[in-house]
Simulated assay, not measured.
Amino acid sequence: MSLKKKPLKSKPICKVSFTLTKDQAKGAGSVHLVGEFNDWDIHAAPMRRQKDGSFTATLDLDTGREYQFRYLINGEIWISDPEADKYAFSPFGDCENAVVTV
């Protein structure tokens, strides 16, 4: 998994690319990027499968903020990004959400 950030010069926006590798996706049929940026809507940000078996999604996020997020594999397995900027305790269970800072 990885996060790549590309701030825009003309707007207070940062293009953030989220990647889940083939090994991390573990043969997933689908992966969704779910977080504060889409009100935790499990259908709002489906990730695209790449030829190498990885999954990617790019979002335009407002700068000067932090966003909690997780990946949802096959509609049932939640995982956090081990390369996130930091982590925050989830109030909905005994897990940590990944955090991206833009």
Rank of each mutant, 00 (worst) to 15 (best):
E83Q: 14
C14K: 07
T56D: 02
C14G: 05
G27W: 02
D41I: 01
C95Y: 14
V34M: 04
F92E: 09
F55G: 01
D60M: 08
I13N: 04
P91N: 04
G35F: 01
V99I: 12
H32E: 02
F55H: 03
G75P: 10
L72P: 01
Y67W: 14
T19N: 08
D62P: 04
F92N: 12
L3Y: 15
H32L: 01
I42K: 14
R49W: 01
D81R: 02
H32C: 07
L33Q: 07
M47K: 10
D60Y: 09
S80W: 12
H43K: 15
S10L: 07
V102F: 13
K86C: 09
G35L: 09
C14Y: 00
W40Y: 14
K15V: 03
A57E: 04
D39G: 03
Y67C: 07
H43N: 14
R49E: 15
V34N: 03
A98T: 07
K15Q: 12
S90D: 04
I42L: 06
D94I: 08
W78T: 11
S54A: 06
F92M: 06
L72E: 05
E76T: 10
S90C: 02
I42W: 03
T63E: 11
P12T: 10
A44D: 08
S2H: 12
L20W: 00
E66I: 04
V102A: 03
I73V: 05
I42D: 14
Q50Y: 08
V100K: 01
V31N: 10
P12A: 13
K9M: 12
L8I: 08
L59I: 02
Q24S: 13
R70C: 12
W40L: 08
R70A: 14
A45V: 13
K11W: 09
P12W: 00
E36W: 07
A98M: 05
A88S: 10
V34H: 04
D52P: 09
E76V: 10
K11R: 14
D52S: 08
D81M: 08
A98G: 13
S80R: 10
D23R: 10
L33E: 07
E66S: 15
F89M: 11
W40H: 06
G27C: 06
A45C: 15
E36Y: 01
E76L: 00
Q24C: 05
K22S: 11
K5Y: 09
S54M: 01
Y87H: 11
D94K: 12
K86I: 00
D60L: 10
Q24P: 03
L33N: 05
S80A: 14
G64S: 06
R49P: 05
E76A: 06
T56E: 03
P46A: 08
T58V: 07
F55C: 01
A88T: 02
K6G: 00
K6D: 13
N74Y: 11
K4H: 06
T19H: 02
D81Q: 06
G93F: 04
H32Q: 06
L59G: 02
D60R: 09
T56P: 00
I42A: 12
M1V: 05
P12L: 04
D23Y: 11
I77A: 09
S54Y: 03
L72Q: 04
Y71R: 02
A44E: 04
G29M: 11
D85E: 05
C95P: 00
F37E: 03
K6V: 15
A88Y: 04
L72T: 02
